[in-house]
């Protein structure tokens, strides 16, 4: 049962990720990305991380991707630019991709493969529960947590400021 769930999640995650870059229509790419994120949430569930799985769906599938879908549905079907936005991208991208793959490959071969025949670490009762994660965030990682929330706050305020400025410009145009 676990194997079936794992392979279903893994195939969904990989297939979704490949479809994101493979599909021509941006709207379908966004939908594929949602499939990818939901499959990842399934994999988190297999790892006993229920909270992370729920957060993954609530935050990414429920909020972030909603905005993506909005944008893709409104301004989708835009023709691809005829020029390359970043010069040399066509050659640089595969190069960087291969470099990243090699790096991750070395990391996996170096460390992860030892555990592949074992049952994996024993998980304590209540591991990954909202309670434990909350304690970690507000005690051990308090500074990082607050810094991240400050960053998000600045981003939110910035978005509001930018939106208001554009509204003023529009008002000026219509008045003039």
């Amino acid at each position: 049962m676990k194997e079936v769930a794992f392979f279903a999640g893994a195939i969904g995650a990989l297939g979704g990720a490949i479809a994101v870059i493979g599909l021509r229509n941006p709207f379908y790419s966004v939908l594929a990305l949602i499939v990818h994120l939901v499959s990842l949430a399934g994999l988190f569930l297999l790892l006993q991380a229920e909270f992370i799985a729920a957060a993954q769906i609530v935050v990414y599938a429920g909020a972030v991707m909603v905005l993506y879908v909005f944008v893709a549905a409104y301004v989708g079907n835009v023709d691809e630019p005829l020029w390359e936005p970043i010069p040399g991208q066509r050659f640089l991208a595969p190069l960087l991709g291969v470099a990243l793959f090699t790096e991750i490959g070395i990391a996996i071969v170096g460390s992860g493969l030892k555990a592949i025949d074992s049952e994996g670490p024993t998980v304590k009762l209540g591991f990954g529960s909202p309670e434990q994660i909350g304690k970690l965030l507000l005690e051990r990682f308090l500074v990082a947590f607050e810094a991240a929330s400050l960053l998000l706050l600045i981003a939110a305020v910035g978005a509001v400021v930018l939106a208001v400025r554009r509204e003023d410009e529009n008002a000026g145009e219509s008045a003039g």
């Binding site: 949602i34 949430a41 229920e50 909270f51 799985a53 729920a54 957060a55 769906i57 609530v58 599938a61 429920g62 909020a63 909603v66 879908v69 549905a73 529960s129 909202p130």
Partner: peptide
């Protein structure tokens, strides 16, 4: 154990249905 987060996780699927 995640209780109400489960509700929010799966109720967000309805959004994609509508859209």
């Amino acid at each position: 154990s995640i209780g109400v987060l489960y509700f929010f996780a799966f109720s967000s699927f309805a959004f994609y249905g509508l859209l």
